[in-house]
Nucleic acid binder design. Structure first.
Lengths: 201, 201
DNA sequence: ATACTAGTTGACCAGTTGGTAAAATGTCAA
DNA sequence: TTGACATTTTACCAACTGGTCAACTAGTAT
């Protein structure tokens, strides 16, 4: 016990990286095992199926996202509108960083990618991603609500519908950046997102 | 010649339907052939590979989209803002219709789905989808430009950037609808899209 | 020492994958 | 009728898929 880097941990790390960059179907159990340096028998000691591994991987991905993006972006050290801006700017930064580090394509959002690949055929995975989205939407909704109270966002804005729209827009531009393989499309989109919230720049 | 329903046509129809609902990897060549009522040998008589079939399928999909959505939505019989509204309302209608007809999940945008599934591993397919997106963006841009001239959209709006954003938003809400398996999320989003364009409703 | 357990291993499985090759059949013009 | 060409069919391939299983190893508590 108390090993620094257990097989299970390495397996989850491999799954996060490989599935983010290449999706679900294109990454086989064997490849996952090779990447993690374990044998296939061990895989099925830790997870009953590839789908189960994916569900756990999604939890890890959500924890990472919360730590690296949600908490920093929505920290209350700046006014609400600035938090929304940071949400978009940080996403842009991560996409650019990932593209350059991995030396490959724009990878986009791991949740969005898997949602569209598996949404119509893996209901459990679909639900987990829906859950992750809903948690982000809740944070955005609270931020919009706060901005309404400070008068930064006009009263007629519906926080729930708008929060949903803001995340949709974020996912949409990430899809566009991936499709065009160009992170520059992400630059400056925060001002348009604020316009969705009724902010007349 | 002049057969009413050639093998190649049936194959493309099958590919459109199956790949839209289940994606690329989950639909095999054999299943495609069964669905179209042909044998696998015939498949490779018409297309050198599954990837080639997909490229042609994307062209068909774009033609369909243009006929069923772009041309009706952006017809010049109504003012520009109303055209943008129709673009969103028609998309909503198609998603609802498809879900009920097929009796299954929300399918989302065929281009968006394939873009995220294959974007990082099939450059040619990625490019074709990028092309399709760009053609739609061009139509939206022209519409925004026209609305600026009629004064419906304020002068400070950048037509190129905003058109890109509007399509991204459309793709984003389609992703969201698919993830939540609920077409109701698509309702009323046209007003938020107009807010992106600087329209103060 | 013993027994229990978590972890690891390699051999194996049936089914499927995209793709090939050649023979058979159908179609049409000269 | 013939020859040329498009189409269809059947049989086949190596590679790979997710998953199983029994045997083995090592640490740990009794």
């Amino acid at each position: 016990m108390a090993k620094v880097n257990t097989s299970k941990e390495r397996l989850l790390e491999s799954a996060k990286a490989l599935m983010h960059s290449r999706g679900y179907a294109d990454v086989g159990v064997q490849e996952l095992c090779n990447h993690a340096g374990i044998k296939k028998g061990s895989f099925y000691h830790f997870f009953p199926s590839k789908q189960a591994l994916t569900l756990t991987t999604l939890e890890e991905m959500e924890a990472d996202l919360t730590q690296k993006l949600i908490i920093p972006a929505f920290a209350k050290d700046v006014p609400p509108l600035e938090r929304l801006r940071r949400f978009f700017r940080l996403s842009h930064a991560f996409q650019t960083e990932t593209k350059e580090n991995q030396g490959c394509c724009v990878l986009g959002c791991p949740f969005g990618n898997l949602a569209l690949e598996l949404g119509s055929r893996e209901p459990e995975i679909r639900q987990r991603i829906e859950q992750a989205f809903n948690r982000i939407i809740a944070v955005i909704r609270d931020t919009i609500q706060e901005a309404k109270e400070t008068g930064d966002i006009p009263a007629f804005i519906d926080p729930d519908q708008t929060a949903q729209a803001v995340l949709s827009f974020q996912e949409g531009i990430l899809m566009m950046a991936k499709t065009c393989n160009d992170t520059e499309l992400l630059r400056g989109q925060e001002e348009i997102a604020l316009r969705m919230c009724g902010v007349v720049s």
